Simulated assay, not measured.
Amino acid sequence: MRFSVLASGSTGNSIYIENDEHAFLVDAGLSAKKLEGLLGGIGRSMKQVDGIFVTHEHSDHIRGLGVAARKYGMPIYANEKTWKAMDGLVGDIPVGQRFTFDMETVKSFGSLDIQSFAVSHDAADPMFYVFHDSGRKLALITDTGYVSDRMKGWISGADAFVFESNHDVGMLQMGRYPWNVKRRILSDVGHVSNEDAAVAMSEVVEQKETRIYLSHLSKDNNMKDLARLSVSQTLETCGVRPGEFVHLYDTDAAEPTELVTV
């Protein structure tokens, strides 16, 4: 199983996952043209993508979904409430391309098993995904106000994580956002801070080589170096030493990460 975080942040999100049989995107939060360019950066094409899994209806996750679906004729997977919430936001997607992926279920595509699980975010019915192939596990979790024990159960022991590290609390509190926006981000249906993300990471990693991609960083309330430092320090406080078996990686709002094998 191979993957690349094509883009991650408030301006747009998409992740590419493939094995030897299939290739998928999770979310299409950028224009179809930008997605094609990002895929080109890792030597892939939208024509190779077998479908798109949607996490929730916020624009930074579905901005290019409708155009991509119509242009490439690929299946789109989302739960029922998310489909309803997307009505009027993505244009017409033919019935034959609309597939329901219920919460906390598994869909299998050859050797690739994909599990869905609930997160806590201010959307209709937000959910993320865990990919399994040949004993290897890739867990995706962003856009959640906290990481519950139930979520930890779904993602625990993954070989690679794409993990939200959205904001530095101090930067957010002192920043330019109006108070109602700050309150929403800090709430249980907002986004996870660097420190809270690291505490959750420390509780789901196992003693094996593990890649963690710090994702969905706020453009205004975080920085890559700060996120890495905060997560590293908190992990160490929790008894996990970064670089020993856990390795941290940046993601970017406009550049794909290297296509790596899980």
Rank of each mutant, 00 (worst) to 15 (best):
I155M: 10
I76K: 03
N222W: 02
T210G: 04
M174H: 08
K224C: 03
Q233Y: 12
P94M: 12
I155A: 14
G91T: 13
L259C: 06
V106G: 00
D125M: 04
D149Q: 15
H58Q: 13
V231M: 04
I42F: 05
Y177G: 06
S116M: 12
A197S: 15
G64H: 08
I185E: 15
D225G: 12
T82F: 02
T55N: 06
M174G: 06
A69G: 08
Y129V: 02
L138E: 10
Y177F: 15
A78G: 08
G91P: 09
K219S: 13
L38S: 00
G51H: 03
V147G: 02
K71H: 07
A253W: 01
Q233D: 10
Q207H: 14
D92S: 10
M151F: 09
A139P: 01
E258V: 11
H58L: 08
D225I: 04
V199M: 00
A160W: 05
D250N: 13
F53Y: 09
L30E: 10
N180Y: 15
D220S: 12
K182M: 09
E244K: 08
T142D: 09
A200G: 00
D143Y: 11
K84R: 14
N19L: 04
L25R: 05
A160E: 09
E104H: 09
D60R: 01
M151R: 04
V231G: 01
L235K: 05
N180A: 10
N13Q: 07
G239R: 07
A85W: 03
S156A: 15
K47A: 05
N221W: 03
A139C: 06
T100E: 14
G64E: 06
P242E: 04
L65H: 02
A23S: 15
P242T: 01
H167M: 14
G88D: 00
V130W: 09
M74F: 15
R228Q: 12
S218K: 03
G110K: 09
G96H: 11
R70K: 11
N13W: 04
E164G: 15
R63V: 09
D113C: 04
D102R: 12
S156M: 04
A123M: 06
I15E: 10
K84M: 11
Q97P: 10
